[in-house]
Protein backbone atom coordinates (compact mmCIF):
# COMPACT_ATOMS: atom_id res chain seq x y z
CA UNK A 1 0.00 0.00 0.00
CA UNK A 2 1.42 3.37 -1.01
CA UNK A 3 1.21 6.33 1.33
CA UNK A 4 -1.71 8.34 -0.03
CA UNK A 5 -1.97 12.11 -0.28
CA UNK A 6 -4.29 13.96 2.06
CA UNK A 7 -7.76 15.16 0.99
CA UNK A 8 -6.37 18.72 1.18
CA UNK A 9 -3.68 17.85 -1.35
CA UNK A 10 -6.22 16.07 -3.56
CA UNK A 11 -8.48 19.13 -3.58
CA UNK A 12 -6.35 20.93 -6.15
CA UNK A 13 -7.73 18.51 -8.73
CA UNK A 14 -11.31 19.43 -7.88
CA UNK A 15 -13.11 21.66 -10.40
CA UNK A 16 -15.77 24.14 -9.36
CA UNK A 17 -18.43 22.07 -11.09
CA UNK A 18 -20.63 20.14 -8.69
CA UNK A 19 -20.92 16.48 -9.72
CA UNK A 20 -24.31 15.67 -11.20
CA UNK A 21 -24.41 12.02 -10.12
CA UNK A 22 -27.30 10.59 -8.06
CA UNK A 23 -26.70 10.66 -4.30
CA UNK A 24 -24.89 7.46 -3.36
CA UNK A 25 -23.51 6.82 -6.85
CA UNK A 26 -20.29 4.80 -6.84
CA UNK A 27 -18.66 7.32 -9.15
CA UNK A 28 -18.14 9.82 -6.30
CA UNK A 29 -15.67 7.41 -4.77
CA UNK A 30 -13.91 6.95 -8.09
CA UNK A 31 -13.53 10.70 -8.55
CA UNK A 32 -12.09 11.03 -5.03
CA UNK A 33 -9.65 8.21 -5.58
CA UNK A 34 -8.51 9.63 -8.91
CA UNK A 35 -7.84 13.00 -7.28
CA UNK A 36 -6.03 11.32 -4.41
CA UNK A 37 -3.91 9.23 -6.76
CA UNK A 38 -2.93 12.27 -8.85
CA UNK A 39 -1.97 14.16 -5.68
CA UNK A 40 -0.07 11.14 -4.35
CA UNK A 41 2.00 11.07 -7.53
CA UNK A 42 2.62 14.83 -7.30
CA UNK A 43 1.19 15.43 -10.75
CA UNK A 44 0.91 19.08 -11.72
CA UNK A 45 -2.71 19.70 -12.86
CA UNK A 46 -1.38 21.48 -15.93
CA UNK A 47 0.30 18.25 -17.03
CA UNK A 48 -2.77 16.07 -16.58
CA UNK A 49 -5.34 15.31 -19.29
CA UNK A 50 -8.51 13.46 -18.33
CA UNK A 51 -10.51 12.17 -21.26
CA UNK A 52 -13.95 10.70 -21.01
CA UNK A 53 -16.56 9.20 -23.29
CA UNK A 54 -20.28 9.64 -22.82
CA UNK A 55 -22.46 8.37 -19.99
CA UNK A 56 -23.02 9.18 -16.30
CA UNK A 57 -19.48 8.20 -15.37
CA UNK A 58 -17.99 10.03 -18.35
CA UNK A 59 -19.11 13.30 -16.83
CA UNK A 60 -16.15 12.79 -14.50
CA UNK A 61 -13.78 14.81 -16.71
CA UNK A 62 -15.81 17.94 -16.02
CA UNK A 63 -15.32 17.54 -12.27
CA UNK A 64 -11.54 17.48 -12.56
CA UNK A 65 -9.36 20.57 -12.46
CA UNK A 66 -7.05 19.57 -15.29
CA UNK A 67 -6.88 19.56 -19.05
CA UNK A 68 -9.09 17.09 -20.81
CA UNK A 69 -11.76 16.25 -23.28
CA UNK A 70 -15.29 15.05 -22.95
CA UNK A 71 -15.67 13.13 -26.20
CA UNK A 72 -18.07 10.76 -27.96
CA UNK A 73 -19.70 7.62 -26.69
CA UNK A 74 -17.03 4.92 -26.71
CA UNK A 75 -14.27 7.05 -28.21
CA UNK A 76 -12.52 8.42 -25.14
CA UNK A 77 -9.77 5.80 -25.27
CA UNK A 78 -8.97 6.68 -28.90
CA UNK A 79 -8.81 10.40 -28.13
CA UNK A 80 -6.72 9.74 -25.02
CA UNK A 81 -4.15 7.79 -27.04
CA UNK A 82 -4.00 10.66 -29.53
CA UNK A 83 -3.34 13.16 -26.74
CA UNK A 84 -0.62 11.00 -25.27
CA UNK A 85 1.06 10.51 -28.68
CA UNK A 86 0.72 14.25 -29.25
CA UNK A 87 2.46 15.03 -25.97
CA UNK A 88 3.97 12.14 -24.06
CA UNK A 89 5.07 14.53 -21.34
CA UNK A 90 1.49 14.49 -20.10
CA UNK A 91 -0.22 12.10 -17.72
CA UNK A 92 -3.26 10.86 -19.59
CA UNK A 93 -6.24 9.25 -17.91
CA UNK A 94 -9.23 7.94 -19.81
CA UNK A 95 -12.47 7.43 -17.88
CA UNK A 96 -15.84 5.97 -18.75
CA UNK A 97 -18.42 3.36 -18.05
CA UNK A 98 -19.03 -0.26 -19.01
CA UNK A 99 -21.37 0.61 -21.85
CA UNK A 100 -18.93 3.19 -23.16
CA UNK A 101 -15.80 1.05 -22.93
CA UNK A 102 -16.99 -2.56 -23.17
CA UNK A 103 -19.94 -1.99 -25.50
CA UNK A 104 -19.67 0.69 -28.16
CA UNK A 105 -15.96 1.32 -27.54
CA UNK A 106 -14.77 -2.27 -27.07
CA UNK A 107 -12.72 -2.20 -30.28
CA UNK A 108 -10.61 0.73 -29.14
CA UNK A 109 -10.25 -0.86 -25.68
CA UNK A 110 -8.78 -4.11 -27.03
CA UNK A 111 -6.39 -2.42 -29.44
CA UNK A 112 -5.21 0.07 -26.84
CA UNK A 113 -4.03 -2.81 -24.68
CA UNK A 114 -1.99 -4.51 -27.37
CA UNK A 115 -0.60 -1.12 -28.39
CA UNK A 116 0.52 -0.25 -24.86
CA UNK A 117 0.43 3.54 -25.08
CA UNK A 118 0.86 4.95 -21.58
CA UNK A 119 -2.74 5.78 -20.75
CA UNK A 120 -4.58 4.83 -17.56
CA UNK A 121 -8.08 3.65 -18.32
CA UNK A 122 -10.56 3.66 -15.46
CA UNK A 123 -13.88 2.01 -16.15
CA UNK A 124 -16.74 2.66 -13.75
CA UNK A 125 -18.48 -0.65 -14.19
CA UNK A 126 -22.04 -0.61 -12.83
CA UNK A 127 -23.40 -3.41 -15.02
CA UNK A 128 -26.10 -1.13 -16.43
CA UNK A 129 -26.74 1.85 -18.72
CA UNK A 130 -27.51 4.61 -16.27
CA UNK A 131 -27.78 7.83 -18.27
CA UNK A 132 -30.21 6.22 -20.72
CA UNK A 133 -32.27 5.04 -17.71
CA UNK A 134 -31.50 1.41 -17.12
CA UNK A 135 -30.94 -0.85 -20.12
CA UNK A 136 -28.75 -3.97 -20.07
CA UNK A 137 -25.04 -3.31 -20.60
CA UNK A 138 -22.27 -5.67 -21.77
CA UNK A 139 -21.54 -6.58 -18.14
CA UNK A 140 -25.16 -7.02 -17.02
CA UNK A 141 -25.59 -10.46 -15.46
CA UNK A 142 -27.36 -13.23 -17.36
CA UNK A 143 -31.08 -13.31 -16.54
CA UNK A 144 -30.98 -9.85 -14.94
CA UNK A 145 -34.24 -8.01 -15.63
CA UNK A 146 -33.63 -4.50 -16.96
CA UNK A 147 -35.67 -2.00 -18.94
CA UNK A 148 -34.48 -3.54 -22.20
CA UNK A 149 -34.53 -7.13 -20.93
CA UNK A 150 -37.86 -7.36 -19.06
CA UNK A 151 -37.83 -11.16 -19.33
CA UNK A 152 -34.25 -11.37 -18.08
CA UNK A 153 -30.96 -10.80 -19.95
CA UNK A 154 -30.47 -13.52 -22.57
CA UNK A 155 -26.78 -12.75 -23.07
CA UNK A 156 -23.78 -13.67 -20.97
CA UNK A 157 -21.87 -10.89 -19.26
CA UNK A 158 -18.55 -9.93 -20.78
CA UNK A 159 -15.44 -10.47 -18.66
CA UNK A 160 -13.44 -7.27 -19.10
CA UNK A 161 -10.43 -8.40 -17.08
CA UNK A 162 -10.16 -11.67 -19.00
CA UNK A 163 -10.44 -9.74 -22.22
CA UNK A 164 -7.71 -7.37 -21.07
CA UNK A 165 -5.35 -10.19 -20.10
CA UNK A 166 -5.86 -11.92 -23.44
CA UNK A 167 -5.42 -8.67 -25.34
CA UNK A 168 -1.96 -8.34 -23.85
CA UNK A 169 -2.56 -5.60 -21.30
CA UNK A 170 0.52 -4.87 -19.21
CA UNK A 171 -1.49 -3.72 -16.16
CA UNK A 172 -4.90 -5.11 -15.14
CA UNK A 173 -6.59 -4.28 -11.86
CA UNK A 174 -9.99 -4.27 -10.19
CA UNK A 175 -11.18 -1.81 -7.61
CA UNK A 176 -14.36 -1.15 -5.68
CA UNK A 177 -15.72 2.32 -5.12
CA UNK A 178 -16.85 1.22 -1.65
CA UNK A 179 -13.17 0.79 -0.74
CA UNK A 180 -11.76 4.26 -1.11
CA UNK A 181 -8.24 3.57 0.26
CA UNK A 182 -7.80 0.42 -1.77
CA UNK A 183 -9.07 2.11 -4.92
CA UNK A 184 -6.74 5.11 -4.46
CA UNK A 185 -3.86 2.69 -3.99
CA UNK A 186 -4.71 0.79 -7.19
CA UNK A 187 -5.14 3.99 -9.16
CA UNK A 188 -1.82 5.33 -7.96
CA UNK A 189 -0.12 2.15 -9.16
CA UNK A 190 -2.03 2.24 -12.45
CA UNK A 191 -1.02 5.82 -13.24
CA UNK A 192 2.57 5.10 -12.21
CA UNK A 193 2.65 2.04 -14.49
CA UNK A 194 4.54 2.56 -17.73
CA UNK A 195 2.14 1.43 -20.45
CA UNK A 196 -1.59 1.02 -20.81
CA UNK A 197 -3.29 0.22 -17.53
CA UNK A 198 -6.86 -0.92 -17.01
CA UNK A 199 -8.66 -0.36 -13.73
CA UNK A 200 -12.10 -1.92 -13.79
CA UNK A 201 -14.05 -0.44 -10.90
CA UNK A 202 -17.14 -1.95 -9.34
CA UNK A 203 -19.11 1.25 -9.01
CA UNK A 204 -22.75 0.59 -8.09
CA UNK A 205 -25.62 2.40 -9.77
CA UNK A 206 -27.99 3.01 -6.90
CA UNK A 207 -30.86 4.01 -9.18
CA UNK A 208 -31.04 1.38 -11.91
CA UNK A 209 -29.13 -1.67 -10.72
CA UNK A 210 -30.87 -3.29 -7.77
CA UNK A 211 -28.85 -6.50 -8.13
CA UNK A 212 -25.20 -5.42 -8.02
CA UNK A 213 -25.48 -3.19 -4.97
CA UNK A 214 -22.86 -2.10 -2.41
CA UNK A 215 -24.13 -4.89 -0.16
CA UNK A 216 -23.90 -7.48 -2.95
CA UNK A 217 -20.30 -6.52 -3.60
CA UNK A 218 -19.35 -6.27 0.08
CA UNK A 219 -20.39 -9.91 0.55
CA UNK A 220 -17.98 -11.00 -2.14
CA UNK A 221 -14.93 -8.73 -2.31
CA UNK A 222 -11.55 -9.64 -0.87
CA UNK A 223 -8.02 -8.25 -1.27
CA UNK A 224 -5.92 -10.26 -3.69
CA UNK A 225 -2.60 -9.34 -2.08
CA UNK A 226 -3.84 -10.58 1.30
CA UNK A 227 -4.29 -14.01 -0.29
CA UNK A 228 -0.77 -14.13 -1.69
CA UNK A 229 -1.74 -13.33 -5.25
CA UNK A 230 1.26 -13.17 -7.60
CA UNK A 231 0.56 -10.29 -10.00
CA UNK A 232 3.42 -11.33 -12.28
CA UNK A 233 1.81 -14.70 -12.96
CA UNK A 234 -0.59 -14.70 -15.89
CA UNK A 235 -2.25 -17.96 -14.81
CA UNK A 236 -2.97 -16.59 -11.36
CA UNK A 237 -4.37 -13.46 -13.00
CA UNK A 238 -6.58 -15.51 -15.28
CA UNK A 239 -7.87 -17.48 -12.32
CA UNK A 240 -8.61 -14.29 -10.42
CA UNK A 241 -10.49 -12.74 -13.33
CA UNK A 242 -12.88 -15.68 -13.36
CA UNK A 243 -14.11 -14.77 -9.85
CA UNK A 244 -17.58 -13.30 -9.73
CA UNK A 245 -20.57 -15.14 -8.29
CA UNK A 246 -18.91 -16.37 -5.08
CA UNK A 247 -16.07 -13.97 -4.50
CA UNK A 248 -14.40 -11.06 -6.25
CA UNK A 249 -10.71 -10.25 -5.85
CA UNK A 250 -9.68 -6.61 -5.61
CA UNK A 251 -6.25 -5.23 -6.42
CA UNK A 252 -3.68 -5.61 -9.17
CA UNK A 253 -4.36 -8.87 -11.02
CA UNK A 254 -1.47 -8.53 -13.41
CA UNK A 255 1.45 -6.23 -14.04
CA UNK A 256 4.42 -6.82 -16.32
CA UNK A 257 7.01 -4.45 -17.74
CA UNK A 258 6.59 -4.13 -21.49
CA UNK A 259 7.97 -1.44 -23.82
CA UNK A 260 5.44 1.32 -24.41
CA UNK A 261 4.47 2.47 -27.88
CA UNK A 262 6.08 5.84 -27.20
CA UNK A 263 9.38 4.19 -26.30
CA UNK A 264 9.38 2.19 -29.53
CA UNK A 265 8.39 4.89 -32.01
CA UNK A 266 11.65 6.68 -32.88
CA UNK A 267 9.78 9.87 -33.74
CA UNK A 268 8.82 10.09 -30.07
CA UNK A 269 11.72 8.41 -28.28
CA UNK A 270 14.39 10.34 -30.22
CA UNK A 271 12.71 13.69 -30.90
CA UNK A 272 10.78 14.12 -27.62
CA UNK A 273 7.13 15.16 -27.27
CA UNK A 274 5.55 15.67 -30.67
CA UNK A 275 4.01 18.98 -29.68
CA UNK A 276 7.50 20.50 -29.45
CA UNK A 277 8.76 19.32 -32.83
CA UNK A 278 9.83 21.85 -35.43
CA UNK A 279 7.20 22.09 -38.15
CA UNK A 280 7.71 21.68 -41.87
CA UNK A 281 10.65 20.43 -43.91
CA UNK A 282 14.17 21.80 -43.62
CA UNK A 283 15.96 22.74 -46.84
CA UNK A 284 18.19 19.67 -46.89
CA UNK A 285 15.26 17.33 -46.29
CA UNK A 286 13.34 19.12 -49.01
CA UNK A 287 16.18 18.76 -51.52
CA UNK A 288 16.51 15.07 -50.74
CA UNK A 289 12.82 14.34 -51.03
CA UNK A 290 12.46 16.23 -54.30
CA UNK A 291 15.25 14.07 -55.73
CA UNK A 292 13.10 11.01 -55.00
CA UNK A 293 10.53 12.31 -57.44
CA UNK A 294 12.89 13.11 -60.32
Amino acid sequence: MVELATPQAAAKFRSEVKPTWCPGCGDFGVLNSLQTACATLNINPKDLAVVSGIGCSSNLSGFMKSYGMHTLHGRGVAVAQGIRLGNHGLTVVSAGGDGDGYGIGVGHFIHAMRRNINVTYIVMNNQIYGLTTGQASPTTAKDHKTKSTPGGNLENALNPLGLALMAGASFVARGFSGDSQGLSDIMTKAIAHRGFSLVDILSPCVTYNKLNTYAWFRERVYKLDEKGHDATNIEAALNACLDWEQRIGLGVLYQVPRPTYEEQDPSLSEFGPLVNHKLGLADEDWKAVIQEFV
Binding site: A49, V51, M69, T71, L72, R75, A78, V79, A80, Q81, G82, I83, R84, L85, G86, N87, L90, H108, L274, V275
Partner: peptide, 11 residues
Protein backbone atom coordinates in the same frame (compact mmCIF):
# COMPACT_ATOMS: atom_id res chain seq x y z
CA UNK B 1 -10.50 10.44 -32.77
CA UNK B 2 -6.76 9.94 -32.27
CA UNK B 3 -6.06 12.79 -34.66
CA UNK B 4 -8.47 14.97 -32.69
CA UNK B 5 -6.66 13.99 -29.48
CA UNK B 6 -3.30 14.90 -31.02
CA UNK B 7 -4.81 18.16 -32.26
CA UNK B 8 -6.06 18.95 -28.78
CA UNK B 9 -2.54 18.31 -27.46
CA UNK B 10 -1.29 20.98 -29.87
CA UNK B 11 -0.05 18.91 -32.78
Amino acid sequence: NMAIGAGYAGV
